[in-house]
Design a protein around this nucleic acid. Structure first.
Lengths: 263, 263
DNA sequence: TAGCGAGTTCCATTATTTGAAACTCTGTTT
DNA sequence: AAACAGAGTTTCAAATAATGGAACTCGCTA
């Protein structure tokens, strides 16, 4: 049922975490057992271990498991240390002040788009509610902007991981159709999402590239067909591209900075 | 060096993640080896597994490890499913609109304060905190508000995990001094942080309690001594308490809601 | 009272993890 | 140019931890 490699006990433990995460709510032991191919006793001990490690919580009253708080600590550290988030933050703030539009920052993970930060037109705060969310790569602006700058082998691997679901009538549902679009994106330096993911939602996105041309992430301005045309969105391109370059430049120096002493 | 239980391979893997997180930046293998009490080959294979599972990333150029993107996915799920975050969000928005001050939402984890959400005042005061960030319980408003409503045995366990560092001259640095404060907090229904964590920073906090009186989390309004006195902050108490009750009421029904079907 | 489903424990078997040592690089010193 | 040193990687028999079938304990229900 699962094509992923297992990597022994650790892999199994993580797949259990995945199973709990996918449930979208508190889960009973029997439910997990039914979904999993692990034997009863094995799953049971794995759950015990994960609870003891605070990766899961067990509600004693209802006998249900949920994801644990320790994951949020890890994620905070991951965002702060290992993502574009902190570097991009001031740039997003500046861009947000300039263009009063919805802005997304994302990176590529496992062939999918992982959102790192967000600015809303009205509300100015970003939290886990936005960061950590995942979305498809083949039909979003940020996704396509990054795919367009992947090497041949990495691209094929990523394309193999797409679901190719036709979210709208405009969604590109084959690798060939997408590759043609990616070629255009590479030439233009920016990507459009022309209602490919949600009807009425359009966006323009730019990649954030290393000096070697590898995509570190991407950034987008989102709007609706009621408020903008693609032509109008294209007006943001120079600003977006400049911001993307600025973030990339900082990221290049960041990669070699001295690690902080803890405490 | 580590008093935590190991729980076999899974525990070791998580302690490696902790080690990487604590470094605050990309880490080389040799560095981790020096800090860890694991033998070279064991640590090496553990790292390989974690990279293969995308819990860590390995920068091939520099040979450094960093926390992986999969952690952010998990955290997003944890926040959405297993925390007060989504329930409290609209309430925080409303409160934020009403009182233009810095607001925090937190829960207790492993004797420490884990921040879940935040709202900034229009003119934000200088301090940083974000979802996933942790802080001390014994000298923060939210921390004390929660400790005040812990049962005797849970309280003692939590108090044993405090560092009792005197961040300021006003910090309570003994369990006895803190317990006296907690008694007052229990009577009042709210807690003050009177520059106990940072000089010049004060706050008022209320717990979010189950019907049984157990703390699910806490909420605070933060300001500085330049802008408010404790007396003035106390004016927010009724509003905070009402919001806390509203969140608690929703949380009670939430616990029994039907899980979402994924996709 | 018997039956059932959910959760928990047991323990001999089995497979994985272990870790000292050897090896391979790459860059530096004599 | 050869020797060295440091960092990372691989090997393999021994030791250990994970496995999972089965038995057990609850709390309910018929």
């Amino acid at each position: 049922m699962n094509a992923e490699p297992q990597d022994g006990t650790v892999g199994k433990a993580l797949s259990v975490l995945d199973a709990v995460a996918e449930k979208g709510g508190p889960v009973r032991f029997a439910e997990l057992l039914a979904d999993s191919d692990l034997p009863k006793a094995t799953l049971y001990r794995l759950l015990q271990t994960l609870v003891s490690q605070r990766m899961l919580t067990l509600d004693a009253d209802t006998g249900t498991y949920a994801l644990g708080p320790r994951l949020m600590r890890f994620a905070h550290a991951a965002w702060s240390i290992a993502s574009l988030g902190p570097i991009a933050r001031p740039h997003l703030d500046a861009l947000s002040a300039e263009v009063d539009q919805t802005i997304h920052l994302a990176q590529l993970d496992h062939g999918q788009v992982l959102y790192l930060d967000k600015r809303n037109a009205a509300r100015p705060i970003s939290m886990f509610s936005d960061a950590g969310k995942i979305g498809p790569a083949y039909c979003t602006g940020v996704g396509k902007a990054m795919l367009a700058h992947l090497g041949a082998e990495a691209l094929d691997e990523a394309l193999a991981q797409q679901s190719w679901f036709a979210h709208t009538s405009k969604t590109r549902t084959t690798a060939e159709a997408l590759k043609a679009d990616l070629a255009t994106i590479r030439v233009n330096g920016f990507a459009f999402d022309d209602e490919e993911h949600e009807p009425g939602i359009i966006c323009i996105a730019v990649p954030i590239l290393t000096e070697a041309g590898q995509p570190l992430g991407a950034m987008s301005i989102t709007s609706s067909t009621l408020r903008h045309t693609l032509q109008e969105l294209q007006g943001y391109a120079p600003n977006l591209i400049a911001t993307g370059r600025a973030i990339a430049a900082e990221a290049a120096t960041w990669r070699f900075r001295t690690p902080n002493k803890p405490h």
